[in-house]
């Protein structure tokens, strides 16, 4: 039995927030629907009122504000992957978005849905973590912004309230002293929800890595940075040996943070190999 609900399609943000204010817990927001349609088909969606936010134009934009890039939650993975601004100022996010599902999924699936659905396998999340992105949540009474790493409570759990909408994702634009890579290990390239993905950013100062940021999806209970490994790389001249060492530390850190679960043993060598590849790609060595 499919889920049953009433349907509202507000055309402005104000109207949407009004509806969420009045019906709160009884509502569910739908953006592209690629995650929700399966729940609806299975009869798992329990909301009385489905609020379709896809007709709110102000939530669809990718903008530059000073040195910040500001992304509306309705921007699709396809739009992110083909945006010149993202390619130039945050290519790691463009590549993450381009790895999502298939062209059809990328045409409907949104960055907002990816963030809020909070799947441990979500591809844009590690990219947003290394970009140190802030998310903005808004309800009728006001808004709050917080780092994306403070947004998650666990797999499929976030701190968003029933009356809130995710309205904005922002981060500083990167200049070309930053190198990056995004790699994912999946069963099949298209369609497979990623099992492990990794995003790397490195700010170079001549030969040295001045700052390095690493985040791995599907490996830790909540999205986070791999700080010990980052410390090993910071200030180093990237070499095969340093990369080897950092990869080993990332795998250890992953095990420590996730607690030893049945999948951990399978994941450890996979993580180590993938980190190595991602770092080699970011630093452009040993390929």
């Amino acid at each position: 039995m499919r889920s049953e609900f009433a349907y509202a399609s507000p055309s402005s943000l104000g109207e949407a927030l009004e509806i969420l204010k009045d019906f709160g817990e009884r509502t569910c927001v739908i953006a592209g629907g690629t995650d929700l349609m399966i729940a609806i088909r299975e009869g798992e969606l329990r909301a009385e009122l489905l609020v379709d936010i896809s007709r709110i134009p102000e939530l669809r934009l990718i903008r530059e504000e000073g040195n910040q890039i500001c992304i509306g939650p309705l921007v699709t993975h396809g739009e992110l992957a083909s945006s010149g601004l993202i390619k130039k100022g945050a290519s790691v996010l463009g590549r993450a978005a381009n790895s999502v599902g298939s062209p059809q999924i990328r045409n409907m699936g949104t960055i907002g849905g990816n963030i809020i659905n909070a799947s441990p396998a979500a591809d844009t999340i590690p990219a947003l973590v290394v970009l140190e992105a802030q998310v903005t949540l808004k309800k009728r009474e006001g808004e709050r912004s917080l780092p994306i790493t403070d947004f998650y409570l666990g797999p499929y759990k976030t701190i968003i309230g029933a009356q809130e909408l995710l309205t904005k994702i922002t981060f500083a634009k990167l200049d070309d002293t930053w190198k990056s890579s995004f790699i994912k290990l999946a069963r099949r390239k298209a369609l497979a929800i990623s099992r492990i993905n990794i995003a790397v950013l490195a700010k170079m100062d001549e030969m040295r890595a001045k700052e390095v940021r690493v985040s791995i999806g599907s490996s830790t209970p909540t999205p986070c940075r791999m700080e010990k490994a980052e410390a090993v790389l910071r200030g180093a001249v990237p070499s095969a040996a340093v990369i080897e060492e950092a990869s080993r530390i990332v795998a250890e850190e992953m095990v420590a943070r996730s607690g030893v679960r049945p999948s951990t043993e399978y994941k450890r060598p996979a993580v180590q190999g993938l980190v190595k590849k991602a770092l080699q790609e970011a630093f452009n060595i040993g390929l």
């Binding site: 349907y7 399609s9 739908i30 629907g33 690629t34 929700l36 349609m37 399966i38 609806i40 489905l50 379709d52 896809s54 396809g78 062209p103 059809q104 999924i105 045409n107 409907m108």
Partner: peptide
């Protein structure tokens, strides 16, 4: 004009 999976598009959209 863009390819989508009809099974994942809610009809009211």
């Amino acid at each position: 004009g863009r390819p989508v999976y009809a099974c994942l598009v809610l009809a009211p959209k």
